[in-house]
Design a protein around this nucleic acid. Structure first.
Lengths: 209, 209
DNA sequence: CAAAATTTTGACCGGTTGGACAAACGTTAG
DNA sequence: CTAACGTTTGTCCAACCGGTCAAAATTTTG
């Protein structure tokens, strides 16, 4: 039996990383079918056959990329914990997700692309691992509601709304920039978004008093 | 000079509609580059050369589809009006957008695909028409804030958050269904979402009292 | 160093895809 | 009927794309 960790030379380690970085760039910008091996190879600074020496098929690159992505992508939700003040916990979660949209927009778009196409490669994971995790966190949130720490609502849709609002700033970045214009579309937009989302999720839109 | 409305026979009218309907189905599911003319032709029940008789290039279909989409897509925002109670207006807007996600998910995904790829074909429209419209509505919303009718926040990010949360149910439908599971993922999910979003946008998550 | 193992590349292949074209088919008006 | 016009299709092509292969270049190892 082969060990589960394939033995790799130093060059293989490095080149595989190089390819994955290049592929993230290309896939996230053009989608899976919209990207060609040649594009990835060029972005990685090597010839196509050379790239195919490290990853036998185009799908293998995508699969590897997706597996790595999912671990880090769900980390913020995993950290959502029962200890500490509920509202603070949620605020931290929103902030972390927004930071990820700011710092890893390519990963967000890669994921969005996959889901948009019907998640052909990761549907089992969504129905298994992801559902389990979300259900678990929904239970935590329900506990907070029962304890009167936060208002009663649907925990699942709460999580969806956090995903949607934060990832929007990565996935729809072009639109956000276009609408905000040159002056407000700069680096400050994430701070503005953070402030807005905090207020939205905590207090909503009803005027005070 | 040719008139701006190209003269078309009855058959041309019908067949073009047929093609656009088929193309919406295919493009929204596979993206532009992921879709082939053959697929669209088959979905429209005709041969490829026949389809190319009505639309000379693949891009022409996509362009026509996108132009039509944009008009209807922004209609709800255009309706956002200064008359009537502000909170009611916003609630209506959210409801209408959610209904569009429910009734026209293919249109939503087509749009999402375009933006994700960097909006190569509609960027001018985003920076022009769309920005103008949003700026205009932001002014209306600011007026409501100044009048103390709704809480003070950033009107642009408010609009983004409404777009994000509602379109999420069309664009990330697979994920939403997977997480909710067979029992809660049925038709009721849009009503649950409507209830949740209303509460979120009006009152936020802080517990009452 | 020299053999062995690994890495890189140019050339090539078969399948797909967007699109062209001319010929055939159908329809309609004089 | 028939000429003109609109519609449909089979065939074909050039470009592209994922992937193979054998040979050359390079690195590692004894």
């Amino acid at each position: 039996m082969e060990g589960s960790a394939p033995r790799r030379t130093r060059i293989q380690q490095e080149k595989r990383e190089l390819i994955l970085e290049a592929a993230l760039e290309v896939f996230s910008a053009n989608g899976f079918r919209g990207s060609t091996i040649d594009q990835i190879a060029e972005a990685a600074g090597m010839s196509k056959p050379n790239l195919l020496y490290y990853f036998r098929r185009k799908e293998d690159i995508h699969e590897t990329l997706m597996q790595r992505l999912l671990d880090t992508w769900l980390a913020p939700l995993r950290e959502l914990d029962d200890i500490g003040d509920p509202l603070t916990e949620l605020r931290s979660y929103i902030r972390r997700k927004l930071e990820m949209a700011r710092d890893f927009p390519r990963e967000s778009r890669l994921f969005a692309n996959e889901i948009l196409q019907g998640a052909p490669r990761i549907k089992p994971m969504l129905e298994g691992e992801l559902k389990t995790l979300v259900d678990e966190k929904a239970t935590v949130i329900k506990g907070w509601m029962r304890a009167g720490k936060i208002a009663r609502t649907d925990p699942w849709h709460l999580i969806f709304s956090i995903w949607a609002t934060t990832q929007h700033y990565a996935d729809f970045d072009v639109q956000v920039r276009a609408v905000l214009g040159a002056d407000r579309g700069g680096d400050g937009r994430f701070e503005d978004a953070a402030r807005f989302l905090e207020q939205l999720f905590l207090d909503g839109l009803k005027p005070k008093g």
